Amino acid sequence: HHGSGALAALHADGPHAGLPVTRSDARVLIFNDWEERKRSEPWLRLDMSDKAIFRRYPHLR
């Protein structure tokens, strides 16, 4: 199991509170979210491209 239990660094406060600090933090969040959702949506594709990251977390651009 590759990303399970990996912890992402999140901004503690300010405008980005609760959001990932780096792209690799964002990838951890996206992976964990996908892993949760694919139980009920097995067709869901995992997209951890930069484009997917920016779409979801525009502050990382």
Rank of each mutant, 00 (worst) to 15 (best):
H1T: 10
H1L: 10
H1P: 11
H1A: 10
H2Y: 11
H2E: 10
H2I: 14
H2K: 13
H2G: 14
G3T: 12
G3Y: 14
G3K: 12
G3W: 13
G3E: 09
S4D: 12
S4I: 14
G5Y: 09
G5C: 14
G5R: 15
G5A: 13
G5T: 14
A6S: 13
A6H: 12
A6K: 14
A6V: 10
A6C: 15
L7I: 14
L7H: 10
L7S: 14
L7W: 07
L7K: 13
A8M: 05
A8S: 05
A8C: 08
A8V: 13
A8W: 05
A9M: 13
A9N: 14
L10R: 06
L10Q: 14
L10P: 07
H11R: 04
H11L: 05
H11G: 03
H11N: 06
H11I: 07
H11W: 13
A12D: 07
A12N: 09
A12M: 11
A12C: 13
D13M: 08
D13T: 10
D13H: 09
D13Y: 08
D13Q: 10
G14M: 03
G14Y: 04
G14H: 04
P15A: 12
P15F: 05
P15Y: 05
P15M: 06
H16T: 05
H16K: 05
H16P: 03
H16E: 05
H16G: 03
A17V: 10
A17F: 09
A17D: 04
A17L: 07
G18Y: 04
G18V: 03
G18F: 04
L19R: 15
L19E: 05
L19P: 02
L19F: 04
L19M: 06
P20W: 01
P20Q: 01
P20D: 00
P20C: 03
P20M: 01
V21M: 14
V21W: 04
V21C: 15
T22D: 04
T22K: 06
T22S: 09
T22V: 09
T22R: 07
T22I: 10
T22E: 04
R23G: 04
R23T: 11
R23C: 14
R23D: 06
R23E: 06
R23N: 09
S24Y: 13
S24F: 14
S24N: 12
S24T: 09
S24I: 09
S24D: 13
D25K: 15
D25H: 04
D25Y: 06
D25C: 07
D25F: 03
D25L: 02
D25A: 06
D25T: 01
A26N: 00
A26Q: 00
A26K: 00
A26D: 00
R27K: 10
R27L: 07
R27N: 01
R27E: 07
R27W: 04
V28H: 06
V28G: 04
V28T: 08
V28W: 09
V28E: 04
L29G: 00
L29C: 06
L29W: 02
L29Y: 02
I30M: 08
I30E: 00
F31Y: 14
F31W: 08
F31H: 06
N32M: 13
N32E: 10
N32W: 13
D33S: 06
D33T: 05
W34P: 00
W34K: 00
W34F: 08
W34H: 04
E35T: 14
E35C: 15
E35Q: 14
E35N: 13
E36M: 12
E36N: 09
E36D: 11
E36Q: 11
R37C: 05
R37H: 06
R37Q: 12
R37P: 00
R37E: 02
R37A: 07
K38C: 12
K38G: 04
K38Y: 15
K38P: 14
R39I: 12
R39V: 11
R39G: 09
R39D: 12
R39C: 13
R39N: 11
S40M: 09
S40L: 12
S40H: 10
S40D: 11
E41V: 06
E41G: 02
E41S: 06
E41Q: 08
P42K: 06
P42T: 05
P42C: 07
W43S: 08
W43Y: 08
W43A: 10
L44I: 07
L44W: 04
L44C: 06
L44S: 11
R45F: 07
R45M: 09
R45V: 14
R45Y: 06
R45N: 07
D47G: 02
D47F: 03
D47Y: 04
D47W: 03
D47I: 03
D47C: 06
M48K: 01
M48A: 04
M48H: 09
S49F: 02
S49M: 02
S49N: 02
S49P: 00
D50A: 07
D50R: 06
D50M: 07
D50Q: 05
D50I: 11
D50E: 08
K51A: 13
K51S: 11
A52H: 06
A52L: 05
A52V: 07
I53M: 04
I53H: 02
I53V: 13
I53W: 01
I53E: 00
F54D: 13
F54Y: 12
F54S: 05
R55T: 15
R55S: 11
R55K: 11
R55L: 14
R56H: 12
R56L: 11
R56V: 09
R56S: 06
R56P: 00
R56Q: 08
R56D: 03
Y57W: 15
Y57L: 04
Y57N: 01
P58E: 02
P58D: 01
P58W: 02
P58Q: 02
P58H: 02
P58Y: 15
P58L: 02
H59G: 01
H59D: 00
H59W: 03
H59K: 00
H59P: 00
L60T: 00
L60V: 00
L60C: 00
R61V: 08
R61W: 10
R61P: 05
